[in-house]
Design a binder for these strands. Structure first.
Lengths: 138, 138
DNA sequence: GTAGTTGCAAACTTTTTGCTACCCA
DNA sequence: TGGGTAGCAAAAAGTTTGCAACTAC
């Protein structure tokens, strides 16, 4: 939705350290946490560099970002459980008319990672409009 | 994770309008969009009021907020598809060792809401640590 | 050598909050 | 009438960006 994509990449010390930090933990850290860790190794690394590299690594598919694809929240007037389709092109979010699968929660509970009160499921792809537009443009 | 929860609630004109706007659309709008719509009805409503009421309505379970429960992004060093468990108490995010269900994508595609390239599934509840803590505290 | 990258700092965006006046129950 | 709520504006929090110096290839 917003990202820089230079043509060629360089493996700088900063980028390598950020990637190593991210690969050596499973806590799904925030940019700030990564920044603090990185400073233990490169004391004068800047937060801007951390963000820039996270963006590049994400664009390369080396890492994943856990959010809704945007910096702001969206609100849903329907508080009952249901699934969503999110368009990667225009950001449109649509309700999906498919039944909520309670059996997924059973399966998750069985893994012993804690209690499960509810779940959320989102499908990412192109909405019908953007699909059509892409076909026309080739 | 952060929210105001007054004991008693009043149904003000502002709150009613915000709720009506949210219930009368299916585009899953942002706070700003709701603010613009609300101003057509209550010209001097403020953005702060919109945010405050969205928070209250959410706490009451009248509406839902579509984000990760926090304002910042989290990063995952593992870019391969997998599911997460999010703790509602401490915010911890854990990887779930369960297989990715491609059949869910098939089902979603069949609904005709667009193409589906991948999906995301998160389970919300208490992590083992917070579960134990709650048991001890009664 | 050169184009991508860095640190720094300022800017930007979204959301929260302090305060006083207000108004719903 | 009292306490939750509104508007306003300033602050906070997270993220992005312009720029000159630097560096990996």
């Amino acid at each position: 939705m917003y990202q820089n994509k230079p043509r060629m990449q360089r493996m700088t010390k900063q980028r390598r350290v950020i990637l190593e930090i991210l690969r050596s933990t499973d806590i799904h850290p925030t940019a700030d946490w990564i920044y603090a860790k990185a400073r233990e190794i490169i004391p004068d690394i800047s937060l801007g560099t951390v963000y820039r590299n996270l963006g590049i690594l994400k664009a390369q598919g080396e890492i994943a970002e856990l959010n809704y694809g945007s910096t702001y929240s969206r609100y849903d007037g329907n508080p009952h459980p249901h699934y969503h389709h999110v368009c990667l092109e225009c950001g449109r979010i649509a309700d999906l008319p498919m039944p909520v699968r309670q059996d997924l929660e059973e399966e998750a509970r069985a893994k012993g990672c804690g209690s499960v009160l509810y779940h959320r499921l989102e499908f990412y792809g192109l909405c019908p409009q953007c699909q059509r537009k892409r076909e026309k443009e080739g």
